Amino acid sequence: MKTNKNTTPVNKALLQELLAVAESPCLSLYMPTHRTHPENLQNPVRFKNLMKELETSLLRKYSKDEIEKHLQPLLEITGGDGFWNYTSEGLAIFSSPGYSKAVDLATSPKEMAIVADTFHTKPIQYYLQSTGRFHVLAINRHDIQLFEGNRHSLVELELHALVPATMTDALGEEKTDKHSTVASYGGTGASMHHGHGGKKEEVDIDSERYFRAVAESVAEHYSKPTGIPLLLAALPEYHHLFHQVNKNPLLLEDGIKINPTAVSIDKMAAMAWEIMEPEFLKKQEELVSRYNQSKANGLGSEDIKEVAVALVEGRVDTLLIEADRIIASRITNLVTGNVQNKDINNPRVDDLLDDMSELALRMGGQVTVLNPDQMPSESGVAAILRY
């Protein structure tokens, strides 16, 4: 799958980068996108409509000349040749004075255009949560494909330049000599070469070297940066060998035991989610149970004012916030945690839940974004307190 050279993927480093931007106004635009023609003709139309929303919000504080200056980076990013021809399931664009970045999303976000003092990062945080995302490595003896999935979709990724796409990429021309095997004898450590290497033994040695190279590079360039689980999709006989050479702790023991080229991507997505769903539900239930226990012990709160004060004081260990819910308020006093209701179109106001999540992260807390039916509170927020 071709990717857009003008966009960047989502990872933890991106989130930290967005949180570090302090110069306002911060423009955050999220939109679902279509990947194929003719549906992708809707992408630039949707973008223009969201740009109008940003402009309307900016008009409340800035002059027309200033607004044009603030919107220009978004137009430059999307104005590149063929930009809208290489989109994934969604797009996010962030811009503030001296900073602009377009982000490719493998899931479809809720349409949103917000101007505030900081970027709106809650959808990025939700996207990054390991509970809902996973990688699928489809491998045979010739080549590999890597996918990112969630409960809704599975999208093929363009491989990192240092990840070998084929056995030739991994081993070059240094495949095992068809007529030579090596053995050690006695305690001398001396090796002797014999000319009786069988074809099966050569294949097994090359497969082992190939699988090891793939396992190491996928771990380094995908698993470590994202922290999300990895599923192996391969013929049953390849699973044992791959697990033997693998050192990636995020590779799940259970996998998809099929020839990945023999099934559709939709079928593979369904098989992957069948494995991942129990793990997903288990983590969600454990987290909600932990909150309920903490609340019973006096160390949990869903009161917005109490949580705001606890965040300012650095007492929040884990913050649960509701996905897609917007509370047009802001913390107006970083000492008392005072919260005031505001207009979301005000260019200084972001979603209160988004502001709370960013403050929690800055204070060393953990943040989890849950769907409404998973939230253990009605307020849109639930906090597990350190003390």
Rank of each mutant, 00 (worst) to 15 (best):
R35W: 09
D117P: 02
L54M: 11
N341M: 08
A360F: 05
M112I: 06
G172W: 01
A310S: 12
S379C: 09
I331G: 02
A170I: 02
V155T: 10
V10N: 00
T3L: 04
I114S: 01
E274I: 02
N248A: 03
T188W: 09
T8M: 04
T56S: 13
E53C: 05
A138I: 09
L319N: 01
R362C: 06
A113T: 01
V203L: 15
E76D: 14
L370R: 00
G189Y: 11
V335D: 15
L19M: 15
P44K: 09
Y99F: 15
R212S: 14
S184M: 07
S294N: 11
E158I: 01
A360H: 08
A102I: 05
H179D: 01
I327S: 02
T188N: 13
F147A: 11
V155M: 03
Y291R: 06
E237N: 11
Y126L: 14
S264C: 08
K61A: 12
F147Y: 15
A234T: 12
E313S: 02
Y126D: 12
P109A: 06
E148Q: 07
A20E: 13
K122L: 07
F119H: 03
E274M: 05
P376C: 10
V335A: 11
D143M: 04
T261S: 12
A233H: 00
H142Y: 13
L370K: 02
T56R: 14
K178L: 05
V10T: 12
E158T: 06
N40E: 05
N140F: 09
Q72E: 11
Y30W: 03
Q16N: 15
D343S: 04
K2D: 06
L54A: 09
D303V: 13
L230N: 01
A310N: 09
V312W: 07
T36K: 14
V45S: 12
L50M: 07
L359V: 06
K110Q: 09
H196E: 12
H193M: 04
L370E: 03
N333H: 03
G90E: 12
I326A: 08
Q125G: 01
E306N: 14
H142N: 15
K199T: 07
G227L: 10
V182R: 11
K175Y: 00
V10F: 00
N248S: 10
N4C: 09
A310Q: 07
E201N: 00
V263E: 14
E23I: 08
L27F: 00
Q42F: 08
S100N: 15
R362V: 08
P32W: 14
T226S: 15
T176L: 15
E68A: 13
F211C: 04
G189N: 08
S108G: 03
Q293D: 10
S180R: 12
A213P: 04
G364F: 13
L54P: 00
H193C: 10
E111A: 13
F83E: 00
V10S: 05
L385C: 09
L299Y: 10
N150F: 10
N292S: 05
G187T: 01
Y127S: 10
S180T: 13
R133H: 08
L241M: 13
S264E: 11
H179A: 09
G80K: 15
V312I: 10
M31N: 11
A328Q: 07
V182Y: 06
Y126A: 14
D350M: 10
E23M: 13
I139C: 05
L334A: 05
Y291K: 01
L353W: 01
I124A: 06
T118C: 12
D303Q: 06
L299T: 04
M268H: 05
